[in-house]
């Protein structure tokens, strides 16, 4: 498995190169910030007409992760849909695709700031999920221990002999892990900005996504 293993409040987790988080002991797959329907929302608001393929690409990658790991539970950690109308506008074949992915496993939708109310039938809708020693929610709360969250779309860069490589990344320390955005049309927030530097401990690490999940000290201010 292409991933980096680390422990959070006793739970052994794997940050996958694909951007998903795997909790092997519970057979739980966590993905965050899919932002399905983003191109549709931008078009609706009179903005640009992006290539309308991000739903297909995001779900193709999710399907590959599910096929590789066969999780018993999939948790979508919020901002699964870019907004309620984007969810409502998803074509029938995408809804069928989502039902197909749900078959044979439990599925939990955590509410995010883009999708605060349940947008789809099927699966369980929760504001947050307490699972053994950890809590899963969309936005990290300072002072919590054992927390798995998303929302910030962290990214980091690594300098290689004059070349600079920037990748979406996981951030983790003794208290929490923040997932990268899984959706194809998502940007990132540098880990050395004030938000993420403020949330994470000084000894936090970043796991860069990609063909190999490289771990580095979290770049911070």
């Amino acid at each position: 498995m292409n991933g980096h293993r680390f422990a959070l409040s006793g739970a052994v987790l794997t940050a996958l190169g694909t951007g998903a988080l795997w909790w092997g002991a519970r057979r739980m797959l966590v993905v965050s910030d899919l932002h399905l329907g983003k191109s549709e929302r931008l078009a609706r608001r009179g903005g640009t007409l992006l290539p309308p393929y991000e739903v297909r690409d995001t779900l193709t990658r999710l399907q590959a992760d599910i096929a590789a790991l066969d999780p018993a539970l999939v948790v979508c950690l919020g901002d699964t849909f870019d907004d309620a109308m984007a969810a409502a506008a998803l074509p029938a074949e995408v809804l069928d695709w989502l039902s197909y992915l749900r078959q044979g496993r439990d599925w939990i939708w955590i509410a995010g700031n883009h999708d605060p109310v349940p947008a789809l039938a099927g699966g369980i809708h929760l504001p947050e999920l307490h699972e053994g020693p950890v809590v899963l929610r969309h936005i990290a709360q300072a002072g919590t221990v054992g927390e798995i969250s998303g929302h910030w779309h962290p990214k980091a860069r690594l300098s290689l002999r004059g070349q600079r490589i920037s990748r979406p990344c996981f951030l983790y320390d003794a208290d929490r892990v923040i997932l990268p955005a899984y959706g194809t049309y998502t940007g990132g927030l540098w880990s050395d900005g004030p938000e993420l530097s403020g949330l994470m401990r000084r000894d936090a690490c970043a796991v860069l996504t990609g063909p190999v999940a490289h771990v580095i000290p979290m770049p911070r201010r």
């Binding site: 293993r5 680390f6 422990a7 052994v12 690594l158 300098s159 290689l160 002999r161 490589i165 000894d203 690490c205 860069l208 990609g210 063909p211 190999v212 490289h214 771990v215 580095i216 000290p217």
Partner: peptide, 27 residues
């Protein structure tokens, strides 16, 4: 060769920050 270079650079950074030993304990 690029991913290999990245791995080397990442390992060097972890070691420089003293995080490699912490890692070994954690996992």
């Amino acid at each position: 060769a690029r991913e290999r270079l990245m791995a080397e650079a990442a390992a060097a950074l972890m070691q420089a920050a003293g995080l490699d030993e912490l890692e070994a304990e954690g996992a």
